[in-house]
């Protein structure tokens, strides 16, 4: 199963510069044209399945606006 991740975009910090959208290797991000941030920008968001939590979006983000999470595989305790 592919690694699954997700992101949270801070609506205060995001300025809709789109650098994360352009950099996303999975091509699963886009600006949310339906909403404006308090500063008046269209924020970035995930728009499709497939985020791997690679954090490329966070690496290019000039505003440290993105928190990235990744699922960790559950270790099953071996039984004797």
């Amino acid at each position: 199963m592919p690694i699954r991740g997700r992101i949270e975009v801070n609506q205060l910090h995001c300025k809709g510069c789109e650098l994360c959208v352009m950099a996303c290797p999975q091509d699963v991000m886009a600006l949310d044209m339906e909403h404006l941030t308090p500063k008046g920008y269209h924020p970035a968001q995930l728009v499709a399945e497939g985020c791997t939590g690679c954090a490329i979006c966070a690496i290019v983000c000039p505003d440290a606006a993105i928190t990235v999470y990744r699922e960790t595989p559950q270790k099953t305790r071996a039984t004797a």
């Binding site: 991740g5 997700r6 801070n10 205060l12 910090h13 300025k15 809709g16 510069c17 789109e18 650098l19 500063k39 920008y41 939590g53 690679c54 954090a55 966070a58 690496i59 290019v60 983000c61 000039p62 505003d63 440290a64 606006a65 993105i66 928190t67 990235v68 999470y69 990744r70 699922e71 960790t72 559950q74």
Partner: peptide, 28 residues
């Protein structure tokens, strides 16, 4: 499902929104 934080805003930054233009790499 367990998840871990892969990236979050560093402690050494305040929570202040920068005055830099969108996409300016000063922020990076």
């Amino acid at each position: 499902v367990m998840e871990k934080v892969v990236y979050q805003r560093p402690e050494s930054l305040t929570d202040t929104v920068t005055h830099y233009c969108p996409g300016c790499t000063h922020g990076v």
